Deep mutational scan, measured.
Amino acid sequence: MQIFVKTLTGKTITLEVEPSDTIENVKAKIQDKEGIPPDQQRLIFAGKQLEDGRTLSDYNIQKDSTLHLVLR
């Protein structure tokens, strides 16, 4: 499925993911596309910070959802 990741600069990254993918996995995909190390990434969805060990389906993230990427 496709999800979107919006950065603070207003750029939107499109990712191909599975509901069973972990947040860690998603961060690795963002690193592949953007070169941002996962340890600098914070992903936010519906006002919640997403934890590495959980999956997209744990957070009820569905296709065409938009996550927000904050760098630390």
Rank of each mutant, 00 (worst) to 15 (best):
22 T>Q: 08
38 P>T: 14
54 R>E: 10
48 K>A: 09
17 V>Q: 09
29 K>F: 11
25 N>S: 07
22 T>W: 12
17 V>T: 12
2 Q>V: 11
21 D>T: 11
34 E>I: 11
44 I>Q: 05
40 Q>W: 05
27 K>V: 03
71 L>V: 06
59 Y>K: 01
71 L>M: 12
56 L>M: 15
50 L>M: 09
61 I>E: 00
34 E>S: 08
34 E>W: 10
4 F>W: 08
10 G>Y: 04
50 L>G: 01
64 D>H: 05
35 G>N: 03
34 E>L: 12
4 F>P: 02
21 D>H: 08
47 G>D: 09
62 Q>L: 08
55 T>D: 09
15 L>K: 00
23 I>M: 06
71 L>W: 08
33 K>W: 03
10 G>N: 12
70 V>Q: 04
53 G>Q: 13
57 S>N: 10
10 G>F: 08
8 L>R: 10
57 S>D: 06
22 T>K: 09
49 Q>H: 04
63 K>P: 11
11 K>L: 12
59 Y>E: 07
36 I>F: 06
22 T>P: 14
69 L>F: 02
71 L>S: 11
49 Q>Y: 09
37 P>H: 12
10 G>D: 04
72 R>I: 10
37 P>Q: 15
47 G>E: 06
60 N>H: 11
48 K>Q: 10
7 T>H: 03
44 I>F: 14
64 D>S: 04
57 S>T: 10
7 T>E: 13
30 I>F: 02
33 K>Y: 09
68 H>Y: 02
21 D>I: 10
22 T>E: 10
8 L>N: 11
33 K>N: 14
17 V>S: 06
31 Q>K: 07
31 Q>F: 06
14 T>R: 04
40 Q>F: 05
1 M>I: 05
37 P>T: 14
16 E>Q: 11
46 A>R: 09
8 L>A: 12
32 D>L: 05
1 M>V: 11
18 E>I: 12
50 L>E: 00
10 G>A: 15
6 K>M: 15
65 S>N: 05
29 K>G: 08
39 D>H: 13
12 T>R: 08
65 S>G: 06
50 L>W: 01
56 L>E: 00
59 Y>T: 02
2 Q>K: 13
